[in-house]
Design a protein around this nucleic acid. Structure first.
Lengths: 369, 369
DNA sequence: GTGAAAGCGCTAACAT
DNA sequence: ATGTTAGCGCTTTCAC
């Protein structure tokens, strides 16, 4: 109860040492759980710690340990209008700059409009928390922002990065690798980079969808693909098309979407206009499937009676849909947790092997197909 | 082009100073943009910086400046089953512990199931980014987790906290205030705490909804409230009820929900069972309104023909609904940005006044009412 | 305008 | 098993 601390600042190791009548080193040992400390002294130190209200100063610790005990969670990719080379843009500049802030059109807003990212955050946080760590959230959709991420890591603010790319040609993974920094990716990069990643067997997932649609008797099947410059979008289309071809449907109607509900709606409109008789649709994610369902119903089609719909992801959108979506489950939380585990492993053993993990998708049958 | 750096580690101020032929102090001045440095030397130093590839070490800087240049974004509140005092729980303990991880039932997962949080993150990040800062994401649903948040701030890992409480009796704001730490809250705390906050005029929002429903001719109106132990839930109900009373409807059917789609569905079922003739519903958030719409349609009611539905928030759920929801817009991104601004202000002037900001909601008319 | 030197709070040899 | 000591890389008086 004696309030020994008189200096203004927070109590330091020195203060605790004085209170306990030992040296700084001993207090440090106790605080960090290093053995070789007399139990009696340990107890005395613990007393002193709680009496003084001591908390280790993170900066001082980081300075000497050279670890930040923090990791960055980076959402990377191109912003709105990746290669917007319209001739009418007045200001020349280097093409991409940080746009307006706060508006619902910002990259950040776009990102979180997809339930996918919330699930990634969930997986990462749930893995990190029991280990006393917390992620620093960063976005990197411009080259300037990417430089900042690299600088952030270089200055030791974080020990490594978890990178979720929204775009195939994302240069960030290579930048990080070149700088010799630790990272793990969500999804395999377009061009090989010596970095671990977790990914889903997208093609297998698409096959599950195709098999299901065919299995329930659909014969005029179309698909709403994701953006084809995103590996996941491309793989899901390929997997779907291959399976359909193998079953005697070499040509299937395709409408490309952008993984958004709105793009799913317009893709469905297009498909319906050209193929009014279709009886099955595979959308490359749930958000687009949800949009497709709206359009189908507006056109008087019952689901799954007239048209069966299969989505992908098993995100919250699958349950927001009526009927609830039959979909291909992507275990995003588990994948994000694994990604985090890989990074922490890497930090613990920097020379360990670069290993990646591929998850298998699973069909979840609900009402829409 | 001369590669001077020979020591293994990253280049330090010392290295740059040597390369530029000046002292560490001068390099520091240049790097930090302090005036009183000869332009010629400035240039020389800048050269040396880029030649050596120097990046300031954050820990060393923090140690002396006593600022982390980081802030925490904390989602606080009770986890699943706030006061789960069922007698059948085997392990006694203090009631709340960290549950399983990764599962979709975790607190983290619950939080991000609501589009609301993604919008908060968006607003915070978009405000922080141009200022070169990034938020550290933390969750605090158990008393242990709350202690960790306080410890995190006390050890200087972050300069302050942005706190979003999901629960009225959340003790975190008081804990932070008592520890003399900087914070700004999203939503006014249940019991007064000397901390700034941003909030919405919930009652005004509910009034807009009531006026709209009455204005379009609805006469048998019910409401699906939010959890009444959450200030926002309580205020929206009060505002709605008061307005209805003022217009001659002192008693209106109420079903309490939990701000989730599912709870909105069951609430709607209950209302419909007791009041099959209702022609208007106000749901205290969009997720519940979405659930209500599903149930109404399953019961053969057309929207807005038979029953008009008004939601609250103007979240992504409003557009995921068919017809799209007429709703009360809460400018979450703007509120989050303002919250961040208040915190940064506070950090810049610790003795400044504690001011809070209340935002006005706005009715967005779409198809559902 | 610039350099020298002190020291932020901590950990990790090394010595005892 | 414990204490002594030397920095980690940076900012910041204080002299010059």
């Amino acid at each position: 109860m004696t309030d020994d601390q008189r200096s203004a600042g927070a109590p330091t190791l020195e203060d605790v040492a004085r209170a306990a009548g030992v040296s700084r080193a001993t207090v440090s040992r106790v605080v960090n759980g290093v053995r070789n400390v007399d139990p009696v002294i340990q107890e005395a130190v613990r007393q002193a710690v709680s009496v003084t209200g001591y908390t280790p100063n993170r900066a001082a610790r980081s300075l000497v340990t050279r670890r930040a005990d923090a990791i960055a969670l980076v959402v990377s990719g191109a912003g709105v209008e990746p290669e917007a080379a319209r001739g009418d843009s007045g200001t020349g500049a280097s093409g991409e700059e940080d746009g307006g802030s706060g508006g619902s059109g910002s990259f950040t807003a776009q990102v979180f409009a997809d339930p996918f990212f919330g699930r990634v955050v969930t997986g990462v946080v749930d893995y990190l928390r029991p280990r006393g760590m917390h992620p620093v959230l960063m976005f990197a959709e411009t080259s300037r922002a990417r430089e900042e991420v690299v600088a952030y890591l270089r200055q030791g603010s974080a020990d490594g990065a978890l990178v979720v790319s929204t775009h195939a040609e994302d240069p960030l993974p290579a930048l990080i690798a070149d700088a010799g920094l630790a990272a793990v990716l969500f999804a395999r990069p377009a061009r090989p980079v010596p970095v671990s990643y977790v990914d889903l067997a997208h093609q297998d997932g698409a096959r599950l969808a195709a098999d299901h649609l065919l299995g329930r008797g659909c014969r005029r099947i179309a698909t709403i693909s994701g953006p084809l410059d995103v590996p996941a979008g491309e793989a899901r289309l390929t997997g779907f098309r291959d399976t359909m071809a193998r079953h005697g449907h070499p040509y299937i109607p395709i409408a490309e979407g952008q993984f958004t509900q709105e793009s799913g709606e317009s893709a469905m409109e297009r498909l319906l206009a050209e193929h009014p008789d279709l009886d099955g649709v595979f959308a490359a994610n749930d958000l687009m499937a949800l949009g497709a369902c709206h359009v189908l119903r507006e056109h008087g089609r019952s689901i799954p009676g007239d048209v069966a719909v299969v989505g992908f992801d098993d995100s919250s959108a699958a349950l927001a849909c009526r009927p609830p979506l039959t979909t291909v489950r992507q275990p995003v939380e588990g994948m994000a947790a694994e990604m985090t585990r890989l990074l922490l492993d890497r930090l613990a053993r920097p020379d360990g092997p670069v290993t990646s993990v591929i998850f298998e998708p699973e069909l979840v049958v609900r009402g829409s197909a």
